[in-house]
Measured scan of single mutants.
Amino acid sequence: EPREEEAEKYIKRANGDYDKAQELAKKDGNEEIAEAIKEYKKR
């Protein structure tokens, strides 16, 4: 799923820090991806 791939990219950029990844996504205006990262975190 493209959303998950995007989320993974942010998580990698944030060195595995989900909260930081979420912030990066929000900064880029990717609210949807920020949500996907939140879902990811719950797994």
Score class of each variant (00 low, 15 high):
Arg43Phe: 11
Tyr40Cys: 04
Lys38Gln: 11
Lys20Gly: 05
Glu32Leu: 12
Lys12Ile: 11
Tyr40Asp: 04
Lys42Trp: 08
Lys38Asp: 07
Glu23His: 06
Asp19Trp: 05
Ile33His: 02
Glu6Val: 09
Tyr40Gly: 04
Ala25Asp: 01
Ile11Glu: 01
Glu32Met: 10
Glu23Thr: 07
Lys41Asp: 05
Gln22Asp: 03
Lys9Val: 10
Ile37Thr: 01
Tyr10Met: 01
Pro2Glu: 14
Ala7Gln: 04
Ala14Leu: 02
Gln22Ile: 15
Glu1Phe: 15
Asn15Glu: 08
Glu4Met: 13
Ile11Gln: 00
Glu39Asn: 07
Glu31Gln: 09
Lys20Gln: 09
Lys27Leu: 14
Ile33Asn: 01
Glu4Phe: 15
Lys42Asp: 14
Lys27Ser: 12
Asp17Phe: 02
Lys9Pro: 04
Glu31Gly: 08
Asp28Gln: 04
Ala25Gly: 01
Asp19Tyr: 06
Glu5Gly: 08
Ala7Asp: 02
Lys12Phe: 09
Tyr40Leu: 15
Glu32Cys: 03
Ala34Ser: 07
Arg3Glu: 10
Glu35Ser: 08
Glu32Gly: 09
Asp17Arg: 02
Ile11Gly: 02
Glu8Cys: 09
Glu35Phe: 07
Asn30Met: 11
Asp28Pro: 00
Gly16Ile: 00
Glu1Leu: 13
Gly29Glu: 04
Lys27Glu: 14
Arg3Ile: 15
Glu23Arg: 06
Arg43Thr: 11
Glu8Pro: 02
Lys42Val: 12
Lys38Thr: 06
Lys26Trp: 11
Ala21His: 01
Tyr10Phe: 04
Lys38Arg: 13
Tyr40Ile: 15
Gln22Cys: 03
Lys27Trp: 10
Pro2Cys: 05
Arg3Pro: 12
Lys42Phe: 11
Glu1Ser: 14
Glu8Thr: 07
Glu4Thr: 09
Gln22Pro: 00
Glu8Phe: 13
Ile37Gly: 00
Ala21Ser: 02
Glu1Pro: 13
Lys20Tyr: 13
Lys9Trp: 14
Lys26Glu: 12
Ala36Phe: 15
Glu4Ile: 11
Ile33Thr: 07
Lys20Ser: 06
Gly16Gln: 04
Pro2Arg: 13
Asn15Thr: 04
Tyr40Gln: 08
Ala14Cys: 03
Gly29Asp: 05
Ala7Asn: 02
Glu31Met: 13
Ala34Gln: 05
Lys41Trp: 08
Ala34Asp: 03
Leu24Cys: 02
Tyr10Ile: 02
Asp19Arg: 05
Glu32Asn: 08
Lys41His: 06
Lys9Gln: 12
Glu23Asp: 10
Lys12Arg: 11
Ala34Tyr: 07
Glu6Phe: 06
Lys42Leu: 13
Glu5His: 07
Asn30Glu: 09
Glu6Tyr: 06
Asn30His: 13
Glu5Cys: 06
Tyr18Ala: 04
Asp17Val: 03
Lys38His: 07
Ala14Pro: 02
Arg3Trp: 15
Tyr10Val: 02
Ala21Ile: 00
Glu5Met: 10
Lys38Pro: 02
Glu35Asn: 09
Asp28Arg: 00
Glu1Val: 13
Gln22Lys: 05
Ala34Ile: 14
Tyr10Thr: 02
Leu24Thr: 04
Arg43Trp: 12
Ala21Leu: 01
Lys27Gly: 08
Asp17Lys: 02
Glu1Arg: 14
Ala25Leu: 01
Lys9Ser: 11
Lys38Ala: 13
Lys12Ser: 10
Gly29Arg: 04
Arg3Ser: 13
Ala21Lys: 00
Glu31Lys: 09
Glu5Val: 12
Glu4Pro: 06
Glu6Lys: 06
Leu24Arg: 03
Glu5Thr: 10
Ala21Asn: 00
Ala25Pro: 01
Glu1Asp: 15
Ile33Lys: 01
Gly29Pro: 01
Glu4Val: 11
Ala14Ser: 05
Lys26Gly: 05
Lys38Cys: 05
Lys12Gln: 11
Lys20Trp: 11
Tyr18Gln: 03
Ala7Val: 15
Ala14Gly: 03
Leu24Phe: 07
Glu31Thr: 11
Lys20Asn: 05
Lys26Thr: 12
Ala7Glu: 04
Gly29Phe: 05
Ala34His: 04
Lys38Leu: 13
Tyr40Ala: 09
Lys20Cys: 04
Lys41Arg: 08
Arg3Cys: 07
Pro2Gln: 14
Ala7Ser: 05
Ala7Lys: 03
Lys26Gln: 12
Ala36Lys: 10
Ala25Glu: 00
Lys12Asn: 11
Lys9Ala: 15
Ala21Arg: 01
Gly16Cys: 05
Ala36Ser: 07
Asp19Cys: 04
Ile11Ala: 00
Arg43Met: 11
Lys38Trp: 10
Gly16Thr: 01
Glu32Phe: 08
Asp17Asn: 08
Glu4Gln: 11
Gly16Leu: 03
Ile37Ala: 00
Lys27Tyr: 11
Asp17Ser: 05
Glu8Met: 15
Glu6Thr: 11
Tyr40Glu: 06
Ala25Ile: 02
Pro2Leu: 14
Glu1Gly: 14
Ala21Asp: 00
Arg3Leu: 15
Glu1His: 14
Glu39Trp: 07
Asp19Ser: 06
Leu24Ile: 06
Glu31Arg: 07
Ala14Glu: 03
Glu4Asp: 14
Tyr10Ala: 02
Tyr10Ser: 01
Tyr18Ser: 03
Ala7Cys: 04
Glu1Trp: 14
Ala7Pro: 04
Arg13Asp: 11
Lys26Ile: 15
Ile33Gln: 03
Glu1Ile: 13
Glu23Asn: 06
Ala21Val: 01
Glu32Ala: 12
Gly29Asn: 07
Ala21Tyr: 00
Glu6Ile: 10
Tyr18Asp: 01
Leu24Lys: 03
Ala14Phe: 04
Ile37Ser: 01
Glu35Thr: 09
Lys9Met: 12
Leu24Ser: 05
Arg13Ala: 14
Pro2Trp: 15
Ala7Met: 13
Ala7Trp: 10
Gly29Val: 02
Lys9Gly: 10
Ile37Lys: 01
Asp19Val: 06
Lys26Pro: 01
Glu1Tyr: 14
Ala36Trp: 15
Glu35Arg: 08
Glu8Asn: 07
Ile33Leu: 11
Ala7Arg: 05
Ala34Asn: 04
Asp28Trp: 03
Tyr18Gly: 01
Asn30Asp: 05
Tyr18Glu: 03
Glu39Thr: 07
Ala7Tyr: 08
Ala14Gln: 02
Lys12Asp: 08
Tyr40Val: 13
Ile37Cys: 00
Lys12Tyr: 10
Lys41Val: 07
